[in-house]
Amino acid sequence: MIELLATRWAYAAFILLMVTGIYMMIANANLVKKVIGLNLFQSAVFLFFIASAYVVDGSVPIVHSEGGGGPYVSPLPHVIVLTAIVVGVSLTAVALALIVRIYGEYGTLDEAVLREVSDD
């Protein structure tokens, strides 16, 4: 177990961050904090990809014209994460825009209060 944590700590951190993010989304009544939880969850996934690309003693994956020079770290997960970050930013923007509208309409961001208002 200890050995696993020592060698695979990046993956353990991924699980921890992911679960924390999901817990924040479920447990917090405040909508902004839910969005922060969502961001944390997404960041955990990004870290998971980045960690998977790491190669011991790997260099930046720019191959020279004569070839050779390896080993390189895997560039594919980096590209994936770059794309996913852009997606995450746009999602946060949409979420915050919706939150601004909800606050303007109801004057609160508390989920429980919002439910009461829209139920009765």
Binding site: M25, L38, V94, A95, I99, R101, I102, E105, L114
Partner: peptide, 17 residues
């Protein structure tokens, strides 16, 4: 309406998850 914003945010949180 406010309801549609709440519904959209709920959809956003779950859809993104």
């Amino acid at each position: 309406s406010g309801e549609s914003a709440i519904a959209a945010l709920k959809y956003l949180l779950l859809g993104t998850t």
